[in-house]
Design a protein around this nucleic acid. Structure first.
Lengths: 250, 250
DNA sequence: ACTTATCTTTTTGTATACACTTTCATACCG
DNA sequence: CGGTATGAAAGTGTATACAAAAAGATAAGT
């Protein structure tokens, strides 16, 4: 089973106090993968009892996991109302992509500076796997590897804090795609990811930054095209509007 | 009592699943403030029983709060070993300031674009309060308001996700200052914060970006000058080194 | 006197129990 | 027949209890 979006090196960092080998870590990873790979559709309720029985633990551990996922904005927890897979709003989706542009473009300078050949080779291997998955029609794997590539790229900068932020943004992007993307929205269509590696290998910072800017705008445009559906909240406003028109005002 | 670094508008967003009015919210804020204002020194142990008795609740609620603070990197939770106020490493400190440069400089464009006069007035008021606090020697308040200014600035961009990230970075900066800063390291010495508001009001994006870059580099330089102390971990290495020298090798 | 081993104390991890809130179904009334 | 109230069922919030681990103290041995 995969581990987060870490692409390899997650074998016990033992540094911070988040994934410190508790037995809930496995449960967390399971739920995390289920959500970002869209096995659980946005809005799906996540009752504590069900999860507790599923994983054979008590609700205590489940609650811990759910709160962690809530902090990462992958699930929504409302008071006395339980947890559900998050449904990012359109404005939240825009914020996510905007934040990704700022972080990924802003960090590309350090990425280029620190991109030793070995690091680039690892990234190329990731792209190769992504293409292989796409070629055999495994879209879920391809999308996953596409996200993993973006995270791995920033990791080269050596900034763990930024890498963590981006990891969250990439997983939330999966939710956005699941919520607003059309079936064929394969995020990075035929993945020009190799191109940016060429620019990085050539030491072309500005070129790489421009590529990233364009790439992320492409991804966003291919997804968030549709506006928010009525969604029961502005239902009242919509109906009022219809009523006014019907009465002949305007 | 203050609320996070939110500077006003925290009166129940009811939107996400984090601060949804549970009774632990008050406990969280208490601990949060105690940590970022350095009433609790980095490294201070936070035993669950003590906190539970202090706030008159059970350990269950305390654990929830501690895990949230752990996710925000303000406390360190190690398996079977409890929680303690985090002690950011030098490399973590560098990552934090680097991330701040990328995010705050990257978002300044949207800040300028969206900075209506009313927003700028609010920011000026914040700077005024900061100066007032500094003038009367209330350094804690001045440092707090300085951080609140940076957060409020980014909030103007309208990107809630980035604002959350920066909120975390600013509070972690407080920990860095507490850990590595000298007593007089007042982060922003006589706070040139008014200057950037002039640039923003004038619509000078590049000027504001350059100002922010320089400002954050100044803050970092005034803090992280010192290298990591032995810190008990490389104690062995240090002692071995001393022993070798004593034996006359080299 | 210093180190090592064992036992006690303290503290954390996890499960369970109970109170309260929400939700859904049923019955009552206009 | 539609709408509202009442009550049962399900689900969450919080406290407590017990098991396991770490920290500390005491005693034995070198």
């Amino acid at each position: 089973m995969r581990k987060g979006l870490s692409t390899e090196r997650s074998g016990g960092r033992g540094e911070n106090g988040l994934g410190t080998g508790g037995r809930d870590e496995a449960i967390y990873r399971n739920l995390f993968v289920a959500i970002v790979e869209n096995h659980l559709a946005p809005g799906t309720k996540l009752p504590e009892d069900t999860l507790a029985e599923t994983y054979g633990v008590s609700r205590t551990s489940i609650r811990k996991v759910l709160q962690r996922l809530a902090h990462e904005r992958l699930v929504d927890v409302r008071l006395n109302r339980g947890a559900a897979v998050a449904q990012p709003s359109v404005s939240e989706a825009r914020d996510i992509f905007s934040a990704r542009r700022i972080i990924e473009c802003g960090a590309i300078g350090k990425v280029v500076a620190k991109a030793v050949p070995a690091a680039i080779d690892e990234l190329r291997e990731l792209v190769r796997r992504e293409h292989a998955a796409a070629d055999r029609g495994d879209w879920r794997e391809a999308i996953y590897l596409s996200g993993a590539f973006h995270v791995a790229l920033i990791r080269v900068s050596g900034n763990e804090t930024l890498t963590e932020f981006l990891t969250q943004l990439v997983s939330r992007s999966s939710l956005v795609i699941a919520t607003y993307g059309t079936p064929m929205t394969s995020s990075c269509r035929h993945s020009e990811h190799d191109d940016v590696l060429d620019l990085i290998a050539a030491g072309d910072v500005e070129g790489a930054r421009a590529w990233m800017e364009r790439h992320l705008k492409d991804v966003e445009r291919s997804v968030v095209l549709v506006e928010e559906e009525p969604s029961a909240l502005d239902l009242r406003k919509v109906l009022d509007e219809v009523a006014r028109r019907h009465r002949g005002e305007r």
